[in-house]
């Protein structure tokens, strides 16, 4: 935060003395006053829901009772989830979904950005066209893809049958084996333009002088990319991957609209399953426990990720 009083840059006194801490707070009272409204809002919209979700996770809500009449069951909800076959299947689906969507969206976006970084006729038009999947509504895209994939009269099936490549339309979203990969393809199609834009922005920061110097020194195209361009893209790549991973862990629209998590739970991921438990089946307690577990898992991943990121920056500073 930017200091406006001039006191924020005052040297900090070492030591845990309470009086010292209070004095420090008092000295920075203007800073705290500035951030107070934001902290209050955060407490209301983030801290309270987290507290409420954790609290609710220790209760059960049978279908005949209102939420306010919930019954305390201790850790039963957690036990029910962790011993449920469905949870582990959904977890596996979520990991596959997140990993493949993130890695492949990033890879495709990265490659596209590199291709579009070169000057050629029609680059602007192509760039605009490639951004379309990202800017159109995810709901509309899901419905369109549902029809493209339709197992009886989908566009892909009609083309394949029409060309004589297949006898009958392939089963994309009505089969437990193919539904998740099919949805991942849609997700990659939706997300890769985001990675492309981020990398394109990163490419603008690569100094031309460095590339020219490397060329003069006889570096090949690959060497220039690997030793000059790529290091400059490391930070933007890290942020892009993080954002994609978080978005994919929290995906809802595409799987929910296209399959509702089916068939036979084969395309349920954490968020769709939690939604179904809460709003479709009113298992508020179980859904809350599920959310708490998801929160802990994501916080753990986030912790290690940020630690790795901080480690990289530290190394950069030391270098």
């Amino acid at each position: 935060m930017t200091s406006v009083t001039g006191q924020a840059n005052a040297p900090r006194r070492p030591g845990p003395a309470r009086a010292g801490t209070l004095r420090n707070v008092w000295q920075h009272r203007a800073d705290y006053a500035y951030v107070l409204p934001a902290i209050v809002v955060m407490l209301i919209v983030i801290a309270y829901p987290i507290y409420y979700t954790v609290d609710l996770s220790f209760y059960t809500t049978p279908p005949s009772l209102q939420l306010r009449d919930k019954i305390f069951v201790g850790f039963d909800n957690y036990q029910a989830i962790l011993t449920s076959e469905v949870f582990w299947r959904v977890t596996w689906n979520t990991l596959i979904w997140t990993f493949l969507s993130t890695v492949l969206s990033f890879a495709l976006g990265f490659a596209t950005a590199l291709a579009l970084h070169r000057d050629f006729i029609g680059r602007g038009i192509l760039r605009a066209i490639l951004i379309i999947p990202w800017v159109i509504s995810a709901v509309a895209a899901s419905y369109i893809w549902k029809w493209i994939y339709h197992s009886d009269f989908g566009v892909i099936g009609a083309i394949l049958v029409g060309l004589g490549i297949a006898d009958r339309p392939p089963n994309f979203i009505d089969s437990v084996g193919t539904v998740l990969p099919s949805l991942i393809v849609v997700n990659i199609w939706r997300e890769f333009p985001f990675a492309m834009i981020m990398i394109m922005a990163g490419l603008q920061t690569v100094p031309d002088q460095l590339l020219s110097a490397a060329k003069v020194d006889g570096a090949s195209a690959w060497q220039r990319f690997w030793h000059v361009t790529f290091p400059h893209l490391r930070n933007v790549s890290t942020v892009t991957v993080l954002l994609l991973a978080v978005a994919n862990f929290n995906s809802f629209i595409i799987p929910w609209i296209m399959t509702g998590g089916g068939p036979s739970n084969a395309s349920h991921i954490w968020i769709t399953h939690i939604y179904e438990l809460a709003f479709g089946r009113q298992r508020w307690g179980v859904a809350s426990a599920y959310s708490v577990l998801l929160f802990l898992i994501l916080m753990t991943i986030g912790y290690f990720y940020v630690r790795a990121l901080s480690g990289d920056k530290k190394k950069d500073r030391e270098a």
Partner: peptide, 11 residues
């Protein structure tokens, strides 16, 4: 067994 109904019946 018979595959005599729409494949898309599940969605």
């Amino acid at each position: 067994r018979d595959k005599s109904v729409p494949v898309s019946a599940l969605t």
